[in-house]
Amino acid sequence: MNLRYNDNSTSQVVRRTIQARRFYRYDQPFRTPTDRQPFQINARVTGDRNTAYQVAVLACPAGVNP
């Protein structure tokens, strides 16, 4: 997972390989490694043909702790 910032720079926050199981939810908490607020989150998901994946991101504004 990579974060993109308004100056067009990026940072990688997660690099993980898993063997996904059907109907199982995987959570991956992370924080931005910089003090800047990203405007875009990119995730790469690959797998077998005809397999559907769903990626969801829950975020809090900078300075707010859940």
Rank of each mutant, 00 (worst) to 15 (best):
D35R: 10
P29G: 06
F23C: 08
A20Q: 08
T10Y: 04
Y53P: 01
R25S: 06
R22P: 00
R22M: 10
D27R: 14
S9T: 15
R31I: 12
S11D: 15
T10K: 11
D48L: 13
N2V: 10
L3R: 00
V55A: 02
A59V: 12
L58R: 04
F39A: 06
A59K: 02
N65A: 10
P38W: 04
Q28G: 00
A52F: 09
M1V: 09
R44W: 07
V45M: 05
P29R: 06
A43T: 11
A20G: 14
A52V: 07
R21L: 14
N65R: 12
S9L: 06
V14D: 00
Y26G: 00
V57A: 12
P61R: 13
A43L: 08
Q37G: 02
G63H: 06
I18L: 15
R16K: 15
D48E: 13
R15G: 07
Y5M: 05
Q19I: 11
Q12E: 15
V45P: 02
R21Y: 03
R4N: 04
V64T: 11
G47C: 04
I41S: 03
A43Y: 04
F30L: 03
I41N: 01
A52C: 07
T46H: 03
T17N: 14
V45H: 01
R44V: 08
T46N: 12
R4V: 14
Y24R: 14
Y5T: 06
T17D: 14
R22K: 14
R4L: 10
Q54W: 02
R16V: 09
N2L: 05
S9D: 14
R21A: 13
T17Y: 10
A20N: 07
V57E: 02
T34H: 03
V55E: 00
A62D: 08
F30Q: 03
L58Q: 10
A43E: 05
R16I: 09
N6W: 11
G63C: 06
P29T: 08
P61H: 01
C60N: 11
D48R: 13
T34D: 07
P61N: 11
P38L: 05
R21P: 00
S11C: 05
N42G: 09
Y5F: 15
N2M: 07
V13F: 01
A20R: 08
N65I: 12
L3K: 02
G63Y: 04
F30E: 06
A52Q: 13
S9F: 02
P29W: 06
S9M: 07
N2H: 05
R44L: 10
G63E: 05
T10W: 11
A20Y: 03
P38C: 04
R44M: 05
Q37L: 09
Q12A: 11
Q19N: 14
Q12V: 13
P38F: 11
N50A: 12
T46P: 00
P33D: 03
Q19M: 09
V14W: 00
D35Q: 11
N2D: 12
I18D: 14
P61D: 10
R22Y: 12
Q12H: 03
M1S: 08
N8S: 15
V45F: 01
R21K: 15
F30D: 08
T46V: 13
R49G: 02
P33G: 12
F30T: 09
T46S: 13
N65C: 03
Q40K: 10
R16A: 08
S11P: 00
Q40V: 05
Q19R: 13
P29L: 09
R44I: 04
